[in-house]
């Protein structure tokens, strides 16, 4: 059974097991490897994408459930908020090993898209599902505040 959805703005069809988690459809079938596997059980956030603009753990999202919806991955994310977040990330060198960072960036963009002026508590809540084993958390927090400031909050 085929599943049709919009991926990074383009109509996309997946012809395979509708139970397949979106993560593996993206990585193995569509070649978008920026979205990472870290746990497979919605614990680490490395697989975070946007589903109709909201953060979503793609490892526990059967592809059938995104039918007709908009999926955005790190490869396709764009706009003012995304730019502010990503440039803040690079300006203070957030990544260490980098493996969690696609997911961190996607969660941060979703947070600031929803709420421009954020408190530390907002960051703690919105980013709690994203593990960074390298513990780049000090800089993740700083980069989100910097991006928030740049967005004129």
């Amino acid at each position: 059974m085929a599943t049709d959805f919009t991926l990074n703005g383009k109509p996309t069809r997946f012809d395979g097991d509708p139970e397949t988690p979106l993560l593996w459809v993206l990585r193995d079938h569509l070649g978008l490897t920026g979205t990472k596997y870290g746990c497979g059980v919605a614990q680490c956030g490395a697989c975070t994408v946007h589903l109709d603009g909201k953060s979503r753990r793609s490892c526990v999202t059967p592809v059938s459930t995104v039918a007709g919806k908009n999926v955005t991955t790190i490869e396709g994310v764009e706009g003012k908020t995304a730019e502010a977040v990503q440039s803040a990330w690079v300006a203070i060198d957030v990544p260490q090993c980098g493996f969690c960072q696609s997911g961190q960036v996607m969660s941060a963009i979703a947070l600031l898209a929803q709420k421009k002026r954020v408190t530390d508590e907002d960051i703690d809540n919105a980013m709690a599902g994203n593990i960074c084993r390298c513990a780049t958390y000090v800089r993740i927090r700083q980069a989100i505040h910097d991006a928030s400031a740049k967005l004129g909050a």
Binding site: G34, T73, Q86, V90, P95, Q101
Partner: peptide, 14 residues
Amino acid sequence: DSATKTDGSAMFTM
């Protein structure tokens, strides 16, 4: 490597 690790283009073995 900060830029490529921020835009998802850095390649890992996986």
